[in-house]
């Protein structure tokens, strides 16, 4: 339980990584790191595909990243229409970890460029849903 609070609209209620949402409430965007072999994962995983361990710790994603790519969605799937248009993208952080998220509404299309410096932070929607977004560095 708990994961239904993730994102604009969640499709998954139960996952062993549901604590991710609690970290968002604390202001942290966290991935998981394997206690046995040190493999780092974002989005978080409960199991390590490198060594098969299921003992994972949480770590906070780095703050300095670059925008690798983005798109502006003018059409939305069912349940997201009211947000249109919205921007989504992929940011790459120190150490090669990447994340996919929406870009902050503060970033206007004309201000967005491939390769720009970005960071990531949690966001709380008016209905209480928790997510994270790519923001200007």
């Amino acid at each position: 339980m708990g994961f239904e609070k993730f994102g604009r609209k969640s499709f998954t209620g139960i996952t062993k990584t549901a604590k991710f949402v609690d970290f968002l409430e604390e202001g942290k965007v966290n991935g998981t790191v394997c206690k046995k072999c040190g493999a780092k994962y974002f989005p978080p995983r409960a199991d390590c595909a490198a060594c098969f361990s299921n003992e994972m710790d949480w770590f906070e994603m780095p703050k300095k990243g670059k925008l690798e790519t983005y798109t502006i969605a003018y059409y939305a799937p069912f349940g997201f229409e009211a947000d249109c248009p919205y921007t989504m993208g992929v940011a790459e952080f120190e150490g090669g970890l990447k994340l996919f998220a929406r870009l902050s509404k503060d970033l206007k299309p004309e201000d967005i460029n491939v390769g720009m410096d970005v960071s990531v932070k949690p966001v709380k929607y008016e209905d209480g849903q928790m997510s994270f977004e790519i923001v200007r560095a």
């Binding site: 790519t69 983005y70 969605a73 059409y75 947000d83």
Partner: peptide
């Protein structure tokens, strides 16, 4: 990925658009 991506409101054209943009 319904756990980690669909909650942002993704659709097929948006994904190919990510490749197109880069």
């Amino acid at each position: 990925d319904i756990q980690w991506e669909s909650p942002f409101g993704t659709m097929m054209p948006a994904y190919y658009a990510l490749y197109a943009q880069a």
